[in-house]
């Protein structure tokens, strides 16, 4: 009998699954459209629509809106992962993954690692659009890279939550609509587009509870001061906690499916 026993090499399995998802996106470049078009569209629309009203000009509004749209794009890229996982589960190919003697976290982790490419692309598009509209962070390129990485890591951590949603939901369509709502509420009920002091008391209370507010504040602080901050560290810790909670939950939901 030629049966190769397998040691459950989690890293190897995950790398293979990430490669599979990368191949899928390379064969379907359309799947990148959302993360490329959305930040450009929002940056132009919001910048030119609200810039004058909120900050007295587009250029003055950019330091507010660039981090805001960056994080909003991360959120919506994360929702894409959830929908993709649901679609995969329904396609039958996951049956085969599950019947293979491999680590059960690999298909999920592979998907999310491959999706970090989407996050990277979304980050580059958001920041470049900002730059073309006149955004010039005074702190230099190094810190722009730092906030880019912070945003990607946050987006990646959040995508574990959307992955769990995807695994628990009944269809890809329901994941999409549920995620869209979550994304809209989280990004608008925060300091992403407007200064907090302009909000009414109850609204400000909600925005202060919203984790998105903290991520955006941390990014703005780094861009304003050109140094690593306490808040930024908190965001990283928070992201790690999210992964620590939601990755095992996602694997549990995957086994249950």
């Amino acid at each position: 009998m030629d049966v190769r026993m397998h040691k459950g090499n989690v890293v190897m399995n995950t790398a293979t699954m990430a490669y599979r998802n990368l191949l899928k996106t390379i064969h379907n470049p359309d799947s990148f459209m959302d993360v490329v078009i959305q930040p450009v569209m929002f940056m132009l629309m919001f910048g030119y629509l609200f810039g004058g009203a909120i900050a007295g000009g587009v250029r003055a509004y950019l330091p507010t809106i660039v981090p805001g749209i960056l994080i909003q794009t991360m959120l919506s890229a994360g929702t894409g992962s959830g929908a993709q996982i649901r679609e995969d589960l329904d396609s039958g190919v996951f049956d085969r993954f599950k019947s293979l003697p491999m680590a059960h976290i690999a298909p999920l982790a592979g998907q999310l690692f491959a999706d970090s490419l989407r996050l990277l692309l979304a980050t580059i598009t958001s920041l470049t659009t900002g730059y073309l509209m006149g955004w010039r962070p005074a702190v230099g390129f190094k810190w722009v890279v730092v906030i880019g990485l912070l945003a990607i890591f946050t987006g990646w951590a959040l995508s574990w939550i959307f992955a769990l949603l995807g695994l628990l939901a009944k269809s890809a369509a329901s994941v999409q609509s549920l995620s869209l709502m979550t994304m809209l509420v989280l990004s608008f009920m925060s300091n992403a587009f407007v200064p907090l002091h302009s909000l009414t008391k109850p609204l400000r209370f909600i925005a202060n509870l919203n984790p998105v507010t903290y991520v955006i504040t941390a990014i703005r602080q780094i861009l304003a001061t050109g140094g690593w901050t306490h808040e930024a560290l908190l965001v990283v810790v928070f992201d790690v906690i999210i992964v620590a909670i939601f990755a095992p939950l996602a694997v549990w939901a995957y086994d249950r499916n």
Binding site: M5, H6, N9, T16, Y19, F97, L100, P101, M102, A106
Partner: peptide
């Protein structure tokens, strides 16, 4: 991909 996942 399936060969690799099977441990080859």
């Amino acid at each position: 991909i399936f060969s690799r996942l099977n441990g080859l």
